[in-house]
Design a binder for these strands. Structure first.
Lengths: 255, 255
DNA sequence: CACTCAATGTTATAATTTTAACATCAACGC
DNA sequence: GCGTTGATGTTAAAATTATAACATTGAGTG
């Protein structure tokens, strides 16, 4: 909260911006203070710098992912999403123009995009953009606007038109709830326009949801199940899924 | 070197791909082996995963370079930008709508924005957006488009119009070259439209350049020195600056 | 000038991580 | 079967890092 403290943090942030780690002792020497002070600088106030085993690391500067500890449960829950994304990747072809939705479901897909020769990714999510920005083989189009921190995504009144002007090949859509009768829903209303526009303009529409989302109702409906060509899900909660999917037209892939 | 070892590494890589860190003990439990084995997995063979203070971190994340050695030159070079940004901050008022240019010059400013009660930041740079996205007191508007990795920024044909539709208060512009007669220039042509639009629409225009930029000519001219109201620079290379600035109209602030 | 307070430094101790050495175990060929 | 081998597990000691308590400094104030 100090002025000098903030100055030191900014200095270290600059030093770490190009990557790498800085040992506490080097940081202390660089700033001309004791290790304890640096330690206090980075631990007593929120910062993009975190302390890991005596070394300062930046929370992925060009990206925004903070350094936090995954629990074993989180890591295993991630396995489901990864399996879903592996299945999604099997639908992707070289040269595709993909619309990639916001949320955490499709994040594991992004690192797999490096295996293709050439792709274009259209998104309105900051975290997606950050992951894609690092891939040299992927052209990135980010749809900007006002930032909504809750979903790490942008919204603007022109977004629907902007998306419909693009030649999107495949729309990869995620959701927070899928209900047999009411359809597919998400939490935030600003996500509705981009999702709907992508569904409207894409040649192929994939809905990617883990099975726990079935039967859930969220504030913002944006599509019917029948609007999708393919539903990618997992078999963890098979009964719930069975209730919904046979009634709808899309083909279902269980990863 | 082992088959199982490689399998475990792949598994952990998947778990870590979305960011964050995984404690050795959780990784061990996740893979059903001892901590020692995981430790050996990641240390005995080259891998994208590294071990930092008992936690696994992805290599494309901060921790990949074991130690980052800073030269004192880098440290002092940082000081200049930080001083410039402190001066810039003194021009900012609560409630301002700021246009913030891409590049590294204005990065140190962003952490200082948390000291204000309420601000709006307009930018077309990914790195700026990432820093601002973390600030709860700042409304962020990102102008999207096609991503240009070289400048970590976006470009689109509609950007000029999009900026002129916004009520920008103060334009904070950086540059790669300032020439007395030819004007102010940058490296990339896609930066010209947003810079010009911001200059055209803003009520107050600040040019922030360290003194080493004076006398340099870059491919893309975007403004004359007289288009700015305030020039913020440093006195490191006073002679060069003197040659240019007296001829132009803006007031000069030396930080 | 003495007092106060916040920031920083110092030290000792606790907790954790790393290393090394050795034990176990299963697979495989002879 | 038997011994070898590579992978893995276990344990204890060494090194490092984290924490907490207390000492010092230094600027601002009455």
């Amino acid at each position: 909260m100090n002025d000098r403290s903030a100055q030191r943090l900014a200095m270290l942030q600059e030093a770490l911006a190009s990557g790498g780690t800085l040992h506490l002792r080097d940081a202390a020497e660089l700033c001309g203070v004791s290790e304890m002070t640096i330690r206090r600088d980075v631990t007593t106030q929120p910062s993009v710098i975190s302390l890991l085993g005596g070394r300062l690391v930046m929370a992925n500067y060009p990206g925004v992912t903070p350094v936090y500890d995954l629990t074993e449960q989180q890591a295993s829950h991630y396995q489901i999403k990864h399996r879903l994304c592996q299945r999604v990747a099997s639908f992707i072809e070289d040269g595709d123009t993909l619309f990639i939705d916001c949320g955490s479901t499709l994040i594991p897909l992004l690192s797999q995009l490096s295996h293709f020769r050439e792709l274009t990714v259209v998104t309105y999510a900051l975290n997606v953009a950050n992951s894609v920005a690092a891939l040299p083989n992927v052209r990135l189009v980010l749809l900007g606007g006002l930032f909504y921190a809750s979903s790490q995504s942008f919204g603007s009144d022109g977004m629907r038109a902007a998306i419909e002007r693009l030649g999107i090949n495949k729309a990869l859509i995620s959701a927070a709830g899928v209900d047999c009768e009411r359809g597919v829903s998400c939490f935030h209303f600003h996500e509705v326009a981009p999702k709907q526009a992508a569904i409207a303009t894409a040649m192929q529409r994939l809905l990617i949801v883990d099975a726990s989302k079935f039967g859930l109702v969220r504030p913002a409906y944006f599509a019917a199940l029948s609007d999708f060509d393919i539903v990618v899900t997992d078999d963890e909660h098979a009964p719930k899924v069975q209730d919904c999917l046979p009634h709808a037209s899309p083909s279902v892939t269980v990863a």
